[in-house]
Amino acid sequence: MTNTLVLDVDGTLVDTNYHHAVAWFRAFRRFDITVPTWRLHRAIGMGGDKLVAAVAGEHVERQHGDELREAWEAEFEPMLPEVRPLEGAHRLVASALERDLAVVLASSGKRHHVDHYLKLIDASDLTSTSSDDVEDTKPAPDLIEVALRRADADGRAVVIGDSVWDCEAAARAGLPSVCLRTGGFGEAELRDAGASAVYEELDQLRADLTDLPMA
């Protein structure tokens, strides 16, 4: 049986979390709604289907939810060429494959964004999911479950992410999680959310690939 790494993408492999926060801020301002960027940042990692209500309330979701998500996409699109891979992203994936680990990406992002990120880290052949594949994104476990099915995973697995939402989704899928601080969350809050280990950068995680907790 093959063990599987279920990798988040935004904030874990590519440096996008603050771009997303700015894009959401601008999207809300289109409707004369001001949500502080610190609050938006705290919500990055959950899907857009959850974020609007989480940061602005159910009434805003009811009135403007779909329009806000369209506005966010329009605001984020011009930033896409600015997105860069996080240091060590390609090395992590390559090392995992060399160690005969299966690698599957479970992202809450849009499909064309995910495809762009995969090209950036030279991993276009990896199995991946996007928000287009499920009705409920993180912190729901659906993306992880779909990713494992697509990878035909037959062994143990661990979720690797950068946010408390990744930890929650992993727990709800019955899997352990480890996290990077690359998304801007603190070590203590990631551990409180369930992360078994927290790393400052991807190369540190890569050094521990054979010792990660799996279930």
Score class of each variant (00 low, 15 high):
residue 127 T to L: 05
residue 126 L to P: 12
residue 86 L to S: 13
residue 5 L to V: 05
residue 50 K to T: 13
residue 84 R to S: 11
residue 103 V to Q: 03
residue 31 F to P: 01
residue 205 L to Y: 11
residue 19 H to I: 07
residue 70 E to W: 00
residue 83 V to S: 10
residue 52 V to Y: 02
residue 113 H to C: 06
residue 168 E to V: 07
residue 123 A to D: 01
residue 148 L to Y: 00
residue 192 D to Q: 15
residue 198 V to S: 01
residue 142 D to S: 00
residue 69 R to E: 12
residue 93 V to C: 04
residue 187 E to A: 13
residue 111 R to H: 11
residue 125 D to L: 09
residue 84 R to Y: 04
residue 21 A to P: 04
residue 138 K to R: 14
residue 90 H to I: 03
residue 175 L to C: 00
residue 141 P to C: 00
residue 45 G to F: 12
residue 12 T to F: 14
residue 157 A to T: 01
residue 63 Q to C: 06
residue 55 V to P: 11
residue 187 E to P: 04
residue 10 D to I: 11
residue 92 L to E: 10
residue 215 A to Y: 01
residue 108 S to Y: 03
residue 68 L to S: 03
residue 206 R to E: 14
residue 52 V to P: 06
residue 178 V to E: 00
residue 179 C to R: 01
residue 176 P to T: 08
residue 210 T to D: 15
residue 204 Q to P: 02
residue 21 A to D: 04
residue 86 L to R: 07
residue 75 E to P: 03
residue 164 V to T: 15
residue 210 T to Q: 14
residue 65 G to V: 12
residue 66 D to I: 15
residue 11 G to L: 09
residue 171 A to R: 03
residue 157 A to C: 10
residue 35 V to W: 12
residue 97 L to N: 07
residue 169 A to Q: 00
residue 63 Q to G: 05
residue 58 E to H: 09
residue 89 A to I: 11
residue 130 S to E: 02
residue 10 D to Y: 12
residue 4 T to Q: 09
residue 54 A to T: 06
residue 149 R to Y: 03
residue 86 L to F: 14
residue 1 M to N: 06
residue 88 G to Y: 02
residue 201 E to T: 15
residue 74 A to F: 07
residue 64 H to P: 07
residue 53 A to G: 15
residue 120 L to Q: 05
residue 165 W to H: 15
residue 117 Y to F: 14
residue 54 A to S: 12
residue 197 A to V: 01
residue 172 R to A: 09
residue 51 L to N: 07
residue 42 R to H: 15
residue 183 G to L: 10
residue 154 D to I: 02
residue 37 T to W: 04
residue 72 W to P: 00
residue 8 D to P: 11
residue 145 E to A: 09
residue 28 F to S: 02
residue 11 G to N: 06
residue 93 V to S: 05
residue 130 S to N: 00
residue 157 A to W: 00
residue 152 D to E: 13
residue 205 L to W: 08
residue 199 Y to H: 03
residue 135 E to S: 12
residue 196 S to M: 11
residue 9 V to A: 11
residue 94 A to T: 14
residue 88 G to T: 06
residue 60 V to K: 02
residue 167 C to N: 10
residue 98 E to L: 11
residue 207 A to G: 13
residue 214 M to N: 01
residue 85 P to R: 02
residue 106 A to N: 04
residue 119 K to R: 15
residue 9 V to H: 07
residue 9 V to Q: 12
residue 39 R to E: 15
residue 169 A to L: 02
residue 210 T to C: 08
residue 41 H to N: 13
residue 175 L to M: 01
residue 202 L to Q: 03
residue 144 I to W: 00
residue 97 L to F: 05
residue 180 L to C: 06
residue 124 S to D: 14
residue 4 T to C: 15
